[in-house]
């Protein structure tokens, strides 16, 4: 292998700055998209468990639609196609005046996509609760809505902390797709450093290490949250 090692390139400007700016955008995309995914996904997951058949079907349709189309295709549709489908004035505003359109589009696309996955976790969390436990809530006079608020959701969110953690990590990794519409996140910056310096090894190693560090931090944090919120007596609890 013929390769000129030069690790110092990582600590030179502008490349060091590029890496950190990339990391910053990765986190900004991931966190904002997670807010959308969590809120929208929770709503859709809950709707998949309600008695009304039409509502359940619509929620299921959302999940199937967003799960069965590659994220990259969805991203391009949000970026290139959706502005054309909007009412004319709104479309024009999106195309001309919306601040930071690449970032906003990436966040919306990633949020809507991950919402379908979060919805599945929320639904399965709710459905693992025994029917008679919900009946016990109804029997003391709670309304169906109250059984969601005080029994089903508090229990299911505690159960699904681990799968939600891995969904967050997925969103964090998937934020790299934003580079295809021009968001200079971490992977894009590593690629750019490679293009400028031909030090691909160093650049990609730096990005890899940064992804690993963030993943590790998230895993540790979520383990802490899991321990704090875990229902006593459930599997794996102390």
């Amino acid at each position: 292998m013929n390769y000129n090692w030069n690790w110092s390139v990582l600590f030179q400007e502008p490349y060091l700055g590029w890496l950190f700016s990339g990391l910053q955008w990765t986190l900004l995309v991931a966190i904002a998209a997670w807010v959308i995914a969590f809120v929208l996904g929770s709503a859709i997951g809950i709707l998949r468990t309600v008695p009304n058949r039409l509502v359940r079907t619509l929620a299921a349709a959302y999940v199937e639609l967003f799960r069965n189309i590659p994220l990259l295709v969805q991203l391009f549709i949000w970026y290139f196609v959706v502005p054309e489908l909007l009412p004319e004035e709104l479309g024009l505003w999106v195309k001309r005046d919306m601040p930071n359109p690449e970032y906003v589009t990436a966040v919306v696309a990633l949020g809507a996509y991950t919402a379908a996955r979060v919805a599945e976790q929320v639904r399965s969390g709710i459905q693992t609760i025994r029917k008679d436990l919900v009946n016990a809530g109804l029997a003391i006079g709670l309304t169906p809505l109250q059984t969601y608020l005080y029994i089903r959701l508090p229990i299911s969110y505690r159960i699904i902390v681990p799968p939600l953690t891995s969904e967050f990590l997925t969103i964090f990794k998937n934020s790299s797709l934003a580079l295809t519409i021009g968001v200079l996140e971490l992977t894009a910056q590593a690629r750019q450093i490679e293009n400028y310096t031909f030090q691909g090894f160093e650049a990609f190693t730096a990005a890899t290490v940064l992804y690993l560090v963030i993943t590790l931090l998230v895993v540790l944090l979520m383990r802490l949250i899991d321990q704090k919120t875990r229902i006593p007596g459930s599997v794996g609890a102390n």
């Binding site: 025994r130 436990l133 016990a136 029997a139 709670l142 229990i155 505690r158 007596g233």
Partner: peptide
Amino acid sequence: KLPLVRARIGMVFQHFELFPH
């Protein structure tokens, strides 16, 4: 109004169904 009716009839289940959280 079912909740009000149900609140007046106590119910005990086979598997206890205490709220685990």
